[in-house]
């Protein structure tokens, strides 16, 4: 554990909680892609199956359980409790275009051809692109609520901090995981355009809106 890793995990946790609180407090999931949230629930479910097979640390177990629990709670709020506010007409990204190729790639490029390892690899690849339906929704509506942009910022920062964590681990522990690193780089790159808008607009007190 190093500072980048811990800060990354906390940023990830902050993102998840910001989103849950936003939906709960405003009683609305307008502007939020339910599809991205389903993908994240799928990511956590397939990645953390090792909860059942191996124990790493209390921290590790606790965070995994919280991430999974929050992911399903978010999906529940969007598709059940506040279904009436869900922006289904704009949330039209075709997730099969992500899940099918990512599933195929997980079968082809993995560390070990075993069920748990393939599912873990699938989750890493899927996480790297799971935000696309959300970014697609924002590009369609042309705007995002400020609280939604804080959520996206924390989520992007999380993976960027993991990149520093991997550099740290490579130098000090000789550890590297090529699958996680490549997917993490892809994931971080997807947020770059958003980071730019966040810094130039949201941090200056303006609402995030895209030119028509």
């Amino acid at each position: 554990m190093n500072i980048f890793r811990l800060a990354g995990d906390l940023s990830h946790l902050a993102a998840i909680i910001i989103l849950l609180l936003k939906i709960w407090k405003t009683r609305s999931c307008a502007g939020i892609s339910g599809k991205s949230q389903i993908l994240f629930a799928l990511v956590f479910t397939t990645r953390y199956l090792d909860l059942l097979t191996s124990f790493i640390s209390l921290y590790n177990t606790f965070m995994k359980v919280v991430y999974i629990g929050c992911a399903y709670a978010t999906v529940y709020l969007i598709y059940m409790k506040f279904k009436a506010t869900y922006d289904g007409n704009h949330d039209t990204f075709r997730v099969e275009f992500l899940v099918v190729p990512v599933g195929g790639l997980a079968f082809l490029v993995n560390h070990d051809f075993s069920p748990l390892e393939i599912l873990w690899t699938f989750s890493i690849y899927l996480e790297s692109v799971a935000i696309l339906p959300q970014l697609f929704l924002i590009s369609k509506t042309g705007e995002a609520e400020t609280i939604t942009t804080h959520y996206l910022f924390c989520l992007g920062v999380y993976r960027a901090l993991y990149l520093f964590n991997w550099i740290w681990r490579f130098y000090f522990e000789g550890f590297f995981d090529m699958i996680a690193i490549v997917a993490g780089v892809v994931q971080t790159i997807l947020y770059c355009d958003f980071f730019y808008l966040y810094v130039t607009k949201v941090l200056k007190g303006k609402k995030l809106s895209l030119p028509a």
Partner: peptide, 10 residues
Amino acid sequence: ETETTEKDEL
């Protein structure tokens, strides 16, 4: 090569 059995990262 990486360790594939224990995943300590989240």
